[in-house]
Design a protein around this nucleic acid. Structure first.
Lengths: 250, 250
DNA sequence: ATATAGATCTCGTCA
DNA sequence: TGACGAGGTCTATAT
């Protein structure tokens, strides 16, 4: 495909005005200025301009965009007298600027995409805290949950309850590996509760519930008198088989 | 553009075999199973298959992909007897599976992208800690930095030094707003140093250096006897003007 | 491989 | 709008 600069400019501006999703591949140089500044030398990239004017610049490898602009960006194409082409993007409220010198366009497509669907996810930390709330014996025998996802001034405590001696128990759960920040997070909640209820340290138990915990995190947990309970994340829906038998389970 | 299933399958597999970057727009349903499970009902999406077999599924809005697969994924296209088409992606080592029922393809392009460039970024937290190391008066008069980015057993301490009384000072810097986790992070470092050097609490000062700090974080900081120093993130390169005069500065 | 922390994090949620 | 925390975070770096 050959595409001259004027054709590129026309296609971009027309599609952008219609809030189409635009994608093109090109050889380019990229400058960004805003919360940080960056420069990316010449190379081939894939550029996406979304319906909400989110802009993504992707290299041929890697999951994350190498450069991007948030939704609400203004897009312009400018041609210089010397025959150079620039894609100039600005988001004034955010003080973000992204500029590309486009040396060569490999292809360009645009289309009006319609999608009102929201994703449904199972197996999150929220599912895990719900599992613990509904199956308190997974923490220990005698544990009585009182609240879940308590997002008050005490903090966003996953599960709170009492043990068989009536002592307050605060549970922080992690889906995967519990690390140092998980321990400090638990500690922060315990201290908030202590302060707000005027309790002493030995009147509150802190429990970190996760599949596993790192050695350093374990040490810090013990140093602070907290406990670790090994809990597997909730069993997800069965992987649907090749006949899609269980697709309807969603 | 009209494209039948066999043509789609052929184009995908051919381009994937050549490690081209593939992008197509389609109406589809998406299932994911791996670290979690998800379902996304029918809608229009943009799908990218990169040279390293990273796969991204994007909705028309938003910066983040709604589904993705990490590099090294195996891609297949399967046609059912009933005329249905599926893009089946699997990453066996990661136990990740992504499957799409593709109802209609709006467009498809692929191209062999070459890009050996690495991005250059200014204005990161690392730049900020370097600025403080080289301009210690920004912390306070008499501050003498000793180490930077100390990633030893003591932790990843941004800047460490001594004040004009010879007391140990630990600085944690944040580019933007310092929040509760920044305070607990600082606290963790101070405690590690205290423990490793056998120092008492009043022998170590902890300073949080950032442009601003939240009210709750400020309170926690004071509760723990730490200090806040207002520091602006490093001045970036001047925004290049419209004549690209300063582009060569990179 | 694991551990640790930053990120122009993004995204959702709630006061 | 800001604050707070989760994320299939991703990515880079060090051990």
């Amino acid at each position: 495909m050959t595409m001259d600069h004027h054709e590129f400019k026309d296609k971009i501006l027309t599609a952008a005005a219609k809030n189409q999703v635009i994608v093109f591949s090109c050889n380019c140089i990229v400058w960004y200025s805003g919360k940080a500044e960056s420069y990316l030398g010449p190379g081939d990239r894939l550029v996406v301009i979304k319906a909400d004017k989110t802009i993504l610049v992707h290299q041929p490898s890697g999951a994350a965009p190498i450069n991007y602009m948030k939704a609400g960006t203004t897009v312009n194409v400018n041609l210089s007298d010397e025959g150079e082409m620039f894609l100039n993007c600005s988001n004034i409220p955010l003080k973000d600027y992204l500029d590309m010198k486009i040396n060569h366009v490999h292809f360009l497509e645009s289309y009006g995409l319609e999608d009102g669907q929201s994703i449904q996810i199972a197996g999150t930390e929220d599912d895990m805290s719900q599992m613990l709330y509904e199956n308190p014996h997974l923490i220990e025998e005698g544990f009585k949950p009182v609240s879940r996802e308590e997002q008050t001034k005490y903090g966003y405590i996953d599960v709170m309850g009492t043990d068989n001696e009536g002592k307050l128990v605060i549970v922080e759960c992690k889906k995967y590996n519990a690390d140092l920040s998980a321990v400090t997070q638990l500690r922060r909640y315990v201290e908030k509760i202590m302060a707000s209820k005027g309790l002493k340290r030995d009147a509150v138990r802190g429990i970190l519930a996760s599949p596993k915990i790192g050695a350093n995190a374990q040490q810090m947990l013990e140093d602070w008198g907290f406990e670790f309970v090994s809990v597997r994340p909730p069993k997800y829906l069965e992987r649907y088989d090749k006949n899609q038998k269980s697709l309807a389970d969603f």
